[in-house]
Design a protein around this nucleic acid. Sequence first.
DNA 1: GTCTATAGCTTGATAGAC
DNA 2: GTCTATCAAGCTATAGAC
Lengths: 192, 192
Amino acid sequence: MRTPTIDDDQLLDRLTEVFRVHGYEGASLSRISEATGLQRASLYHRFPGGKEEMAEAVLRRADDWFISHILAPLSDDQPPSQRVERMAKRLAHFYDSGEHSCLLDSLSLGDAEAALQCHVEQSFTAWLGAMTAVARAAGATAAVAKRQASDALVQIQGGLVFSRVTGDTRPFRRVLKNLPELLTGAGVKKPG
Amino acid sequence: MRTPTIDDDQLLDRLTEVFRVHGYEGASLSRISEATGLQRASLYHRFPGGKEEMAEAVLRRADDWFISHILAPLSDDQPPSQRVERMAKRLAHFYDSGEHSCLLDSLSLGDAEAALQCHVEQSFTAWLGAMTAVARAAGATAAVAKRQASDALVQIQGGLVFSRVTGDTRPFRRVLKNLPELLTGAGVKKPG
DNA sequence: GTCTATAGCTTGATAGAC
DNA sequence: GTCTATCAAGCTATAGAC
């Protein structure tokens, strides 16, 4: 390389934030260039497919992180309620306690390319499936588990919308706290 | 007028849909022109302030409808649970059972003008206030009522996001059905 | 692997005819 | 009150130097 440059991880971090905050259409190359410190042509060197490839790369990496840190631990051998508690804790980190909106939500609005929208839907479905499985493991029937998982995703996404519009993250944090009960029927264990 | 033209109500209908589906940035004048059948210059004749004035007009009309049809009836003299049931029924119509996303959500993303974002937040707050009041009327303390209203709004918005991403409107419809219990503690009355 | 420069198109907005 | 024609600015994308 000729001059020092930003590494892939940092680059994807910055890209993720731009897409998350501005959505697909709002994430203009000017904004991306400003956020990453790279000129247009450099961005096209890293992502020959242009803006859509950038969004796909961002989604793919978010998926990887989400699957390994949040979904996979949902099916280990601990008690279901503890698995959900851990998911809630990691979701709190992932969304910065509600300060961050959801990339899937941002990219689902409006006019992202069809392939992107499809990817978003699949990520959503994977999340739903993992939560359904843990609800089943906690003893729910298939139908009830599916309903509980949908309700959980509804409340998580709604909490994030609420935070974005009002700036008040308390409802989102309340949702996370109530996730174990919602998904496994297990109330929070009070010591003593 | 020289030639027949679209009336204000129809025009605002079309505009509302474009902003709802595409968000503020995605609602380009080309799309608006196509959706309304009016050329750019004609749109500027109706809305001298341009795109921002169009969005403001759309928001203002949505507010009017929402306040008179949904919020005002929340504070009449019927039993609280019946007021909420009526709100749920009208929300089902307003959002076409979840097929329509929320204008407030769409306009809150990304880079709508600051004045718009402020308007969106105020509409959200008015809705919260009306639901808080009906929860109080049902006997909740101020703190509990506020929490219930926030939870209701979280679930409504989350249900709409869920519908938009997955195309499955069932969770949203379930949210509406459960609103009376959530806001007033009244289960659905089973006849007999 | 970055940069400058620019092509070609779309955007939001205006001017002026009818 | 609509239209055609146009503007300057912004957009995505590319060419080519270093």
